[in-house]
Amino acid sequence: MCAMIEPLTYFWLLLKASLFSTGGTGNLPSIHADMLARGWATDRHFAEALAIGQISPGPNGLWVVCFGYLTAGVRGALLAALAITIPPFFVLAVAALHRRIGDHPAMQGFVRGLGLAVSGIFLVVVVQLLNEVGIDWRSVTLVLAAVGLGLSNRLPIPVVLGLAAVAGMVLY
């Protein structure tokens, strides 16, 4: 069982992670590190939330709402929804800044550096999620199959995940 969650800190951790990242899943590494450190979530929560977030409607960043529900019930889901709604409003500041210094190379360099770090860190966290199911021939095959299907771009993501679910029922 997870440790008692303090709502304010919980909200701040989700908000902070989204403030300092871009895109719907850029906040994953930060949330992962903070929540695991406090014992407020397990790797399983992340794996489940990411999977449901992929299937449900809306931007894929709504995985945080699933995460909120799984770790802290309806209150957690609502706190999470609020935490991911606030940071995008900073786009107004970015637009204003861009009108003034958008073409400055340092600004573009900053955005690029940030993007590279997000990609690198994301890779580490995603691979760590495999610990949840164990690394063996079954899980590695499923990873490769998903990469292949994703690259081919033929099937919508929910269908790929549906196939994976069926494969899971057969294999495990």
Partner: peptide, 20 residues
Amino acid sequence: QSALHGVVPATVGLGLLLSS
């Protein structure tokens, strides 16, 4: 649970694509 066992590696695979 066994369905999720299949979905997690698939999510990891798609995550690798996203990262790249």
